[in-house]
Design a protein around this nucleic acid. Structure first.
Lengths: 134, 134
DNA sequence: GTGCGTGCAAACCGTTTGCAATCGG
DNA sequence: CCGATTGCAAACGGTTTGCACGCAC
């Protein structure tokens, strides 16, 4: 059992992160933190987020593009990712992940335990911005 | 219209890749290529695979862990990933991706276009190797 | 001969780590 | 005071890139 300390850095990262509702990556949190408190080190922000994810106070999302995102909501749910800007939003759908998992066959000896589902789409901002390129 | 050349390197990468059925990452292809033809450059392997994916002759898989994998099969299908060793295998299941997509709601203004599904499990080799750690 | 493709090494990007200094308890 | 936590800079791992040379056509 480690002896966790309540440092200024933790409070700041936690405050800034709670005020962001973008499912930010660690880098995005770092940038936001910089504006409020320019002294904080990048390593510290990464460490604080990683530790919070470890403890389960935040959720680390592993999406198919790019970097891990962090989510304030710790309960399991799904996400949509904007294919144009990478924005992430929650999806409220009920998905029967277990049903999906049960229907899997032909997995070459694998024991299937679960599944990740991730939706792809276009966010509000980019629906207007995008001109048809094709 | 670019004028594509048929080089020795392309033939080798293509041969080695076709003989691998692990859904290898670029690095894994590079390693395999090295054994057969130690002279080839890492950059070249990456470039050849990237170009093949671009042309659609191979499929680049973006999975939630780690690095992109490459798949000889260009038709859309799903995958299982071993949570212990990262091995990837094809899944033969019929998943109603469109049904899933249609059932999405509450996406904060997103237009949902599709979804990624990825199964997680344990591969044959690691089912035996794994002792319960918990 | 022309210019695409290659090899090399350096740059890149996000993340992690070793270490000495610092500060919370 | 003691050791958890920080800041810094360097290391990391996978991938990409700039450039000069070489080879396919």
């Amino acid at each position: 059992m480690k002896d966790k300390r309540n440092t200024l850095q933790k409070r700041i990262v936690s405050d800034v992160f709670s005020s962001m509702h973008n499912h930010p990556s660690a880098g995005m949190v770092y940038d936001a933190v910089q504006e409020k408190f320019p002294g904080i080190s990048r390593a510290t922000v990464y460490r604080i987020l990683a530790e919070a994810a470890e403890e389960g106070t935040v959720q680390r999302l592993k999406l198919t593009d790019a970097n891990d995102r962090f989510d304030i909501t710790t309960k399991k749910h799904y996400h949509v990712v904007c294919r144009d800007c990478g924005a992430v939003a929650d999806v409220e759908t009920e998905i029967d992940g277990i049903g999906l998992t049960e229907r899997t066959v032909g997995c070459e000896g694998f024991t299937v335990e679960g599944c990740h589902v991730e939706f792809v789409g276009v966010c509000e901002k980019y629906q207007n911005k995008t001109e048809k390129i094709i």
